[in-house]
């Protein structure tokens, strides 16, 4: 009986925290299908010096898709920045695949002079906050004339070390016997990488790319100092600029901004989880 009671308390706590985690998504969704007029009712105290407090609700009285229509049809700036974000993500991921995957494979499966040193560089860089490397990145980008181009955000992202480290962890668990077998069959080293390494480590690659995608979707620091031209801004810099007077639009824009990550998250939770675990724990 005592145990049952304890379990009930634990369950209530776990559910409460779960609610806190999903509530923002639900409120943003409900806000984006609420008409402007009703929404003003919710947030009137902030806007008009009226008494009382903001009320956020999970269910609108009069649901409508007006906000979505406005977002889709009359807001070129939103779309510009939405696509900037997507372009940054896709190009960073493509670059990461091209450079990061072989790099992780080389570090995990071969022994060569200097390997340890390179690995340590990667780990150290992984833990350095952006503020440490900010000036370094700026100096290089300036030298190559890349400031104020999307490349200023994409190129340093491609060589970010965390995804390489995550893939390294996965590749390390590919058994050496598999490689030896392929070698005896006469496969070249590149062939082994492409035909054995990549397929066997594909879940690790996917996990690393997922972490990288999340990072790209929400990055603020780099674009904030490397992109002065508003046309190039990602969504993350644009959203805080929408004034509360356009609450319905802002709710809707925020909701659409989370759609790519939510879709990816719900289609591949187990990969995200595996990536998170690999970032910290040696299996």
């Amino acid at each position: 009986m005592k145990k049952l009671f304890a379990h009930a308390i634990i369950a209530v706590m776990l559910f409460a925290v779960g609610m806190l985690a999903v509530l923002p998504v639900l409120i943003l969704f409900s806000g984006s299908i609420t008409g402007e007029a009703e929404l003003y009712g919710w947030i009137a105290p902030i806007l008009g010096g009226q008494e009382g407090f903001v009320r956020l609700r999970l269910f609108p009285d009069y649901p409508t898709l007006r906000n979505f229509v406005e977002l889709l049809l009359d807001s070129p700036e939103f779309f510009q920045m939405f696509w900037n974000t997507q372009r940054i993500s896709v190009e960073t991921l493509a670059g990461g695949l091209l450079f990061g995957v072989p790099c992780a494979w080389g570090l995990a499966q071969y022994r060569f002079p200097g390997r340890k040193a390179i690995l340590w560089c990667y780990i150290l860089l992984m833990i350095m906050p952006f503020q440490v490397t900010m000036l370094s990145e700026y100096l290089v980008l300036k030298k190559f004339g890349l400031l104020d181009t999307l490349a200023a955000v994409i190129l340093p992202g491609i060589f970010q070390t965390l995804p390489v480290f995550v893939m390294y962890r996965f590749f390390s668990s590919v058994p050496n016997a598999l490689l030896e077998a392929a070698r005896i069959d006469g496969a070249g080293e590149l062939g082994i990488f492409l035909k054995v390494g990549v397929p066997v480590g594909s879940s690790g690659i996917f996990s690393a790319m997922m972490l990288q995608f999340l990072e790209c979707q929400s990055m603020v620091e780099r674009p904030l100092i490397f992109l002065k031209n508003k046309q190039l801004w990602p969504l993350a810099l644009y959203l805080p600029e929408i004034s509360p007077e356009r609450a319905g639009f802002a709710m809707c824009a925020s909701f659409v901004a989370m759609l790519p990550v939510l879709l990816l998250f719900f289609s591949g939770q187990e990969y995200l989880e595996a990536g998170i675990v690999a970032s910290a724990i040696k299996e």
Partner: peptide, 25 residues
């Protein structure tokens, strides 16, 4: 529990503002 980690910070700013204002929720 992973959802807050997954969604971009920028998408939740509006909610934080509505929550934390002097007249906020």
């Amino acid at each position: 529990y992973l959802i807050p980690f997954v969604i971009p910070s920028a998408a939740t700013v509006l909610l934080w503002q509505l929550l934390l204002d002097r007249k906020g929720a």
